[in-house]
Simulated scan of single mutants.
Amino acid sequence: MTATESPTEVRPADAPEQAPARAIPDALPLLPEDPPRVGAFWLRGRLGANAAGYLYAASDETGVDAVVAMMTEGSADDAAARDRFVTAVDDLPGEAVLAHNDSDDDDLALWVAIGPIRVADGSSAASDERLIAERRGEEVLSAVLMDRIPHLGRFRGPDFLHYWEGRRRPGLFRIWPLPWPSALRAASRWALILSLIAMAVVMALAVLLAWLLFRNAEPLEPEPVIPTPTNTSTVTVTPTTPPPAPTTGPTPTTGPSPTPGSPTSGIPTTLPSTSGSPGTGDPGDRF
């Protein structure tokens, strides 16, 4: 081997091949709890998170990329945390703030879109712009969390903890207009259209089968009562026994009829008058 030749690396036959380095994605996927859209920016993935808020990779309808910093539901309910968020946004350079919501929306979480970010073309300038936007978003959330304030004095006692740090879900948001169907890609739109057509065909087949099964069915006995437009129904009741005939004369007595020669045949059936004249009535009543 001459001096100009370089030694060749010899690898054992049983040595395993090194796996290629795993590519780290630019952003983590969105979770179901994340908003699909904030203002005019569609969110594509998560860039970071802490107790104060989230960083999202986003872009608007025109293709302008941005980094969106949004508060959590816990920090958004704290008036002091909202003030720190607004102050941190005001401290950013004017060209760095692309959009933000109104601080008077007490029922919504505050958010800010930070940019500008050049379209990713593989150049170092585009990567630097995105990195700068991410750092600015982290500074805004750190101002809310107050984790970068230098500590004065000695560390004593328990660590400081915000009362809302346990509520780390994304804050409340409002989407208008609705994200459907502008957020769908062409493939998603075709899949949605085909699924709706399939659902309509299945429903039509179900109706056809029901009609074929019950078209020759016998009517129900008794027939169902159909209510009238006044929500009343008429039911005809057929009596099982005829009603008794009405009588106009006096009701006959039910006692046994006297027979001739019986002791009770001579008893008068009328009572003496109690309001009669002096010559009538019972002799014992005279005085």
Rank of each mutant, 00 (worst) to 15 (best):
M1F: 03
A3H: 09
R22T: 11
I24T: 13
P25H: 03
E33L: 06
P35K: 01
R44H: 14
G45W: 10
Y56S: 07
A58S: 15
D60W: 12
D60R: 01
E61M: 00
E61A: 13
D65G: 07
V68E: 08
G74N: 07
A80Q: 02
R84W: 00
T87K: 04
P93T: 09
L98E: 01
L110V: 10
P116V: 01
P116E: 04
S123F: 10
S123A: 14
E129N: 05
L131P: 00
V140T: 15
L141C: 01
M146H: 03
M146R: 15
R148V: 09
R148A: 13
G153W: 06
F160V: 08
Y163C: 00
I175Y: 04
W176G: 02
L178P: 04
P181V: 07
L196R: 07
A198L: 14
A204M: 07
A206L: 14
L208Q: 14
L209H: 07
L213P: 01
I226V: 09
P229Q: 09
T230V: 06
T236I: 15
P239C: 10
T240F: 02
T253C: 03
G255F: 02
P256F: 02
S262K: 11
T269A: 15
T270G: 02
T270Y: 12
G281L: 11
